[in-house]
Design a protein around this nucleic acid. Structure first.
Length: 193
DNA sequence: AGCACGATTAACT
DNA sequence: GTTAATCGTGCTC
């Protein structure tokens, strides 16, 4: 029986949460009860208003308000006019920070994932932050959702942790116009098989 | 009210 | 390697 990740897990330093989320399971229990999800294999940390790569650099706005709220909630946002990206809010209430989930290894609901990623090879089902949202049918409906609520439809479960020797750490992706040191700071965590 | 651009992806050359 | 797709957000006027 898989154990839900409690809110205290997320109420810690964002880098710790990002590292330890590798191996955890992200699951969407869909309206008909079918579970769709996988093992998290890539994350990035976004930490506070000082972090010029973090959306909270602009301060508290209607878009970023969720990041200022309690940990364990979903920060889901829309970008490039077509893509949704999923984050988990971390740290204490009032401090804006989150972990972006960038890639999964699909383990549940494979037929649904295949259907939503129609025609694409399996390795491209969930190997990107917008791809996994499409595969798991995560969108703005879940922005602000409590991932730790007992009846949550979108939630996380503990899995098998990846040891340090199978984790690569590097610079975050896609921060093209972000100034240093934020652009190159090694806050990306990748688990390799 | 207008504008530049983005924590990306897929389809190109 | 390059680039179009497509629109909400935050910033400037």
């Amino acid at each position: 029986m898989p154990e839900r990740i409690p809110r205290e897990f997320f109420a810690r330093p964002t880098l710790t949460v990002a590292r330890e989320l590798l191996g955890a399971h992200l699951v969407h229990r869909e309206p008909d009860g079918v579970r769709v999800g996988g093992i998290i294999v890539e994350t990035e940390a976004y930490v506070g208003e000082e972090d010029q790569g973090c959306h909270a650099r602009a301060g508290r706005t209607s878009r970023t308000a969720v990041m200022y709220g309690p940990p364990g909630h979903a920060y889901v946002y829309f970008t490039y006019g077509m893509h949704w990206l999923f984050n988990v809010v971390t740290e204490r209430e009032g401090f804006p920070a989150a972990v972006l989930v960038r890639a999964l290894m699909p383990t549940e609901g494979l037929e649904r994932i295949a259907a939503r990623r129609a025609g694409r090879p399996r390795r491209e089902w969930t190997n990107g932050p917008a791809k996994l949202c499409q595969a798991l049918d995560i969108d703005g409906r879940y922005h602000g959702a409590d991932l730790c609520a007992p009846d949550a439809a979108l939630f996380l479960e503990f899995g098998e942790a990846f040891p340090d020797e199978s984790v690569t750490i590097g610079a975050r992706v896609g921060l093209n116009t972000v100034p240093e040191p934020w652009k190159s700071i090694p806050w990306r965590f990748i688990a390799r098989p």
